[in-house]
């Protein structure tokens, strides 16, 4: 699916995040204005500490902004308290982390069920696992799977609730490039099949080639944005 420029999913206005350690104030985000569109796959690039994870956390309702505003469609996230943010995460957001964060005592299917049990319109766990190509591994525990498989379970868990946005923080960071490509394939598939707006943070600049849009971060600000006219398939990417 192509991104739809008229359908704004996230909008931030002068978004600022300051870490006050007492002695020094660190501007993790120094006034970010950004729009993210429906069905878009955006890649955030930038050096460590440039503010991309902070942005992702605030968009995902995990962290509070110091200043500025964030809207998810018509919902102003910056006005929500803890309870509201929990609700927001539960209903609209899927997360994929660098270290998978699966529950070791639950099988692949049960890890997915964690989400489908509480989401309003979920797909069946089996279907989610099928999407990531792990239908045959669904009764295995995380410790019985490879890193790539675990990450795919994490993606299945994230998409099973049919979220409107999928936020991925270094999803391939802990994987070798071959396994990483498999994971990216899944992300691309989900983005295209379900129309889920997806943000991927990465250190591997080559991954930008699969995005609709690339956003470069520097010192808590957006340095530049780039639109890919010709996207590459993950299998064509090498890093």
């Amino acid at each position: 699916m192509k991104s739809n420029a008229s359908d704004v999913v996230f909008r931030t206005k002068d978004l600022t995040k300051v870490y006050d350690t007492g002695e020094v104030k660190v501007f993790a985000l120094a006034g970010v204005d950004l729009k993210l569109f429906g069905g878009e796959l955006a890649v955030l690039l930038g050096p460590s500490g440039s503010g991309k994870s902070t942005l992702l956390n605030i968009l995902g309702g995990l962290d509070h902004a110091t200043d500025g505003q964030v809207w998810f469609r018509d919902l102003e996230l910056t006005k929500l308290r803890d309870r509201g943010l929990t609700r927001f995460r539960r209903d609209h957001v899927g997360f994929v982390f660098q270290f998978y964060n699966l529950v070791p005592s639950l099988t692949a299917r049960e890890n997915v069920q964690l989400v489908t049990d509480v989401a309003p319109h979920p797909m069946r766990p089996e279907e989610a696992l099928e999407r990531v190509g792990l239908f045959h591994r669904m009764d295995h525990f995380p410790a019985e799977m490879s890193g790539g498989e675990q990450q795919r379970v994490a993606i299945a868990r994230a998409v099973a609730k049919r979220p409107e946005v999928l936020l991925c923080d270094e999803p391939t960071g802990a994987l070798d490039s071959k396994t990483g490509i498999q994971v990216l394939e899944v992300l691309k598939q989900v983005n295209e099949d379900l129309g889920t707006s997806t943000i991927v943070i990465t250190h591997a600049a080559e991954i930008r080639k699969m995005a609709h849009r690339v956003i470069w971060f520097q010192d808590g600000k957006i340095a530049k944005t780039e639109i890919n006219e010709a996207r590459l398939a993950p299998s064509e990417i090498v890093w």
Binding site: L62, T86, R87, N101, V103, P104, L114, V118, R157
Partner: peptide, 16 residues
């Protein structure tokens, strides 16, 4: 701790 935090991120409430 890690597991429980993950669940919070997934949208589980404090009570859950």
């Amino acid at each position: 701790a890690r597991e429980l935090a993950s669940l919070r991120i997934l949208g589980f409430t404090r009570g859950e």
